[in-house]
Design a protein around this nucleic acid. Structure first.
Length: 803
DNA sequence: AGCACGCCGACT
DNA sequence: GTCGGCGTGCTC
């Protein structure tokens, strides 16, 4: 067993297969499947993942593994299989799938160095200058020097210098230094007596350890005895004392005290919902559940008690929460119940913090992980339940390579571990609800809110009528009056602005010219603070023009509604309102999100004004009014899910009001209040919406009736892009069944991004068993063009974003 | 990816 | 003739 099968860290189709390596004697028994190793590959050294250890190979001469990067495997047997499944179902490279499962910090980094071989007298003048007395220089320095790479090449051939490759990215654990006695305590006393009186500090330290022979943090010891390392050093040198390094975790939640909660008694409805879940945990049976519960119906308590059962059984739990809802409030609920048995993984953590949380999972020091999408890869080995809260959230689908959906991964893992997967939502996706109707998922329903609270009354306001009545502000009379009323009563208001499709663009009032990004076909967004225009797709930036670049008129202005603008007009309308604005700008700094919410919870403000990020998971008892400023801004996006998204968003936002004892009220402003998604959301009528939307999907042949696959072709040359897309469409027509509907080629909704033209082709199908094979063929056919001509093909099976 | 090998044009 | 352009193929 001295041969390792390794996936190399070179994401190309030619290297997307295992390579065999010999395990050197010194590493036999150390190298194990799931470990990262450093291997020679061609002339360089790179990282690789060990898939398996065998004694078979079809090669006569194997290179040796140079070193291991981990002492324990970073991928479990299950994750190795899962990675293969991901790469095959999403068409990505094996390495990319494995990389996606690990924290960023474990990604290998490469460095090249130039090593001097020759003696000084043999050096050419150019090398003398480059090295300047040193033996090694970073490869990048060549660029900065007057030497060209070809000259260096020559020197390498002459044997004067050599290129060395370094792989970085070993585990970086944060360590703390502890001091312990290196000898038994009776000997300490002897030494104490033998130590001369003038060595005052040394005697002090010895006396300390005679009294407390336990290990102590070096920093603490020095502080306590008011001394420095200088007096510690001789004792360490004589091995009377020893240093011990201990790994410490960068725990962002370490400082915080969580109030412990105990299970609440469940309502009858909750009891009914939890029983099948508990049963499947007990029977170790994989059952996918869809928990459809209205906002405030106590889904979380069902999760918590299911997890409790899993922990009592000695198993582990994964809870996925949308990034945006991973608020301190949410974390608190899990930490409050399970304390230090919980690890939290989300994007606001630093790379080091993420790694440390991951380490706790790997070492089985925690049994529960609460996290965003990528937490689905938590390296647990004995999973008892996987929960996906807010199942409908689009953030569970990764939008770049590998394009996996956390829900699919969860179900795949659930099958492996024979455990239930619970998908929870107040507004499930049509896909999931349809599966529940067909009994693919088992449906559990919570119809009542906790504490018998009623759903807040929703009032639709037709903004067209407001406009005709002469109200040109963005607040209807009703909304404005209600806000004033709540402020007077000392109650709080949440105002929601859906920013997408409502960004502030710049237009000339004279000629109608809209300022667009020179690299992307999209309007630039005006940023007030910097007085600049920015592109949200590439990072292009330019100053706000004072005159129109096309007609030189000075009437160029910005339009649209941002949270800043809403805040301003709110200030004018109700001057004594205290407003907290939450958007990307005000929450960028670490912890800002939490600070603002705490402020609001402490009633230091009357109004919380924000975008998407305030739609989820917030729970403030004093909020009795929710205002939605522009309900239909999502509705007009070129996306077949726009109605569904509108319905979901309105339902979620409405759920923010009246969660406790005070009754809540919601005002929804819209220019199309008669649209079924808005009307049905205002009545909390999911079933009717589901039926109506399903009909639409059937008519237009969209999911869940049809599967979709989106193929995007991009290249800097417009004609070439169109041409390739056309050929691809033809190829697909020739190779897929005549049941498949192939749409295209069409320009992508964003036709040009970063100076690349983008065309797409959409495939709608019900059953195409050869689809993956055909797509693979397609990649093979265009492999050369992709490598050499800068062509890009992206394939997204079951896309969420159609852009 | 990154590198070597190899075959063509334009220069000391 | 040779230096250097980049198309082609390989990495256990």
């Amino acid at each position: 067993m001295n041969i390792a099968r390794v996936i190399v860290d070179v994401p190309t189709s030619q290297t997307n297969r295992p390579f065999d390596y010999k395990i050197p004697d010194s590493l036999i028994g150390v190298v194990a499947p799931g470990m990262r190793v450093i291997i020679p590959f061609g002339p360089r050294k790179i990282m690789g993942f060990v898939l398996e250890v065998t004694d078979q190979t079809s090669f006569t001469r194997l290179k040796k593994i140079q070193d291991v990067m981990d002492l324990t495997p970073v991928l479990t047997h299950e994750l190795i299989q899962l990675g293969r499944w991901i790469s095959e179902t999403t068409l990505c490279f094996y390495v990319s799938a494995y990389q996606a499962m690990l924290p960023q910090l474990l990604k290998a980094k490469y460095e090249k160095e130039l090593w001097l071989l020759a003696e000084h007298e043999d050096l050419t003048e150019d090398l003398e200058r480059l090295f300047g007395g040193r033996g090694v220089v970073p490869y990048e320095e060549i660029e900065a020097s007057s030497l060209s790479y070809s000259q260096i090449q020559k020197r390498i051939h002459e044997g004067l210098v050599e290129v060395h490759y370094k792989v970085k990215g070993k585990e970086t654990k944060k360590k703390e230094t502890y001091i312990v006695p290196g000898i038994p305590s009776h000997r300490l006393e002897e030494i104490y007596h033998d130590t001369p009186k003038q060595a005052k500090k040394q005697r002090l330290i010895l006396a300390f350890f005679i009294e407390y022979p336990d290990e102590i943090l070096q920093k603490k010891l020095l502080e306590e005895l008011k001394t420095t390392r200088a007096s510690l050093k001789p004792l360490l040198d004589k091995e009377i004392l020893k240093t011990v390094y201990k790994e410490v975790y960068r725990d962002p939640y370490q400082q915080r005290e969580y109030e412990r909660t105990t299970p609440f008694p469940l309502t009858e409805e909750q009891q009914e919902a939890i029983e099948p879940v508990l049963a499947s945990i007990e029977d170790k049976r994989h059952v996918p559940f869809l928990l459809h519960g209205v906002t405030g119906s106590g889904k979380t308590e069902v999760y918590l008690q299911s997890i409790q059962q899993v922990l009592d059984d000695g198993r582990e739990a994964i809870v996925l929460v949308p990034e945006i809802a991973l608020t301190p409030q949410m974390v608190e609920r899990f930490k409050g119940r399970f304390g230090s048995r919980v690890a939290v993984l989300h994007s606001a953590l630093s790379a080091g913090e993420k790694f440390d949380e991951w380490r706790k999972i790997q070492r089985k020091e925690v049994q529960v992980v609460v996290g965003a999408r990528s937490a689905i890869f938590a390296p647990f080995e004995n999973i008892g339940i996987i929960i996906i809260d807010e199942e409908h959230e689009s953030s569970y689908k990764q939008e770049d390579y590998p394009r996996y959906h956390a829900r699919d991964v969860a179900i795949e893992r659930g099958k492996y571990h024979h455990c239930p997967v619970v998908l929870g939502s107040a507004t499930p996706t049509l896909e999931s609800f349809a599966r529940a109707q067909k009994d693919v998922y088992k449906l559990l329903t919570l119809k009542k809110r906790m504490n018998n609270a009623s759903m807040p009354e929703v009032e639709l306001v037709d903004m067209r009528k407001e406009l005709h009545a002469g109200n040109r502000s963005m607040f209807s009379i009703q909304l404005r009056e209600k806000i004033e009323d709540r402020i007077q009563k000392g109650e709080q208001v949440v105002l929601f602005l859906n920013r997408r499709g409502y960004s502030t663009f710049v237009m000339c009032r004279d000629c109608g010219e809209v300022k667009e990004c020179p690299h992307c076909d999209i309007a630039l967004t005006y940023h007030r603070k910097a007085e600049r225009l920015k592109c949200h797709y590439c990072s292009h930036e330019e100053p706000m023009p004072t005159i129109c670049p096309s007609c030189e008129s000075d009437t160029i202005r910005y339009f649209g509604t941002g949270t800043q603008k809403v805040e301003e007009s709110l200030n004018q309308l109700i001057p004594d309102a205290r407003i907290i604005r939450m958007d990307v700008d005000t929450t960028r700094r670490k912890g800002a999100h939490e600070r603002l919410l705490t402020k609001f919870a402490d009633k230091e403000a009357d109004i919380l004004l924000g975008t998407q990020m305030i739609a989820k998971g917030l729970d403030f008892g004093n909020v009795t009014l929710v205002g939605v400023l522009a309900a239909d801004s999502l509705l007009h996006l070129p996306d077949f899910r726009s109605s569904e998204k509108t319905f979901q968003l309105l339902t979620q936002v409405s759920g923010r009001a009246g969660r406790h004892t005070l009754p809540g009220e919601v005002i929804v402003q819209s220019y199309t209040p008669e649209h079924y998604s808005i009307e049905m959301a205002s009545q909390y009528d999911f079933e009717s919406f589901y039926k109506k939307e399903m009909k639409m999907r059937k008519t237009f042949r969209y999911p869940p009736y049809y599967f979709l696959t989106l193929l995007t072709v991009s290249h800097p040359n417009h004609l070439y892009t169109m041409d390739v897309t056309q050929k691809i469409v033809q190829f697909l027509r020739d190779h897929l069944s005549d049941q498949a509907i192939i749409l295209g080629p069409t320009p992508s909704p964003l036709t040009r991004i970063k100076d690349r033209y983008r065309y797409q082709c959409m495939i709608k199908y019900r059953n195409e068993p050869t689809l993956h094979k055909v797509m693979n063929r397609l990649f093979q056919i265009y492999e050369d063009a992709i490598q050499q001509k800068d062509l890009q093909l992206t394939i997204d099976f079951q896309p969420y974003q159609l852009m």
